[in-house]
């Protein structure tokens, strides 16, 4: 791949990704008062996060077993309102330890 081709591709890739993020961010300044849209925006984060996590997280590590152990540890700590960093680190540790034992 020559440089001309690479930079054209890069422009399309980075440019489109940037504009998709920024245009709605800049264009919609007003508070949205429509109840349905407000409700939709309220639920969007939880729906997005769940769709990204499940079932993908089951297959993120080297074995489904270690992933499940990590996910369970994360759920228990999250249920106890531990911080994001604590939950993330202990989930990783749980995976590591599980894979050492296996």
């Amino acid at each position: 791949m020559n440089n001309y081709q690479f930079f054209t591709y890069l422009l399309v890739l980075a440019g489109s990704t940037y504009l998709i993020r920024v245009i709605p961010f800049v264009a919609i300044k007003e508070k949205i008062n429509n109840k349905l849209i407000r409700s939709f925006l309220y639920y969007i984060p939880y729906a997005v996060l769940t769709a990204m996590t499940l079932p993908a997280a089951f297959y993120a590590t080297r074995s489904v077993v270690s992933a499940i152990v990590g996910i369970l540890v994360a759920i228990i700590l999250a249920y106890k309102n531990k911080s994001l960093t604590v939950v993330a680190i202990f989930a990783c540790l749980a995976v590591y330890i599980t894979e050492l034992i296996m």
């Binding site: 996060l49 996590t53 993120a60 990590g70 700590l77 994001l84 993330a88 202990f90 540790l93 995976v95």
Partner: peptide, 21 residues
């Protein structure tokens, strides 16, 4: 590989920490 594998769960752990509460 073991460390890579463990790190792969960091982001999901974070998501869980946001949603479950």
């Amino acid at each position: 590989e073991k460390i890579m594998s463990a790190l792969a769960l960091a982001i999901y752990g974070m998501f869980i920490a946001i949603v479950v509460p």
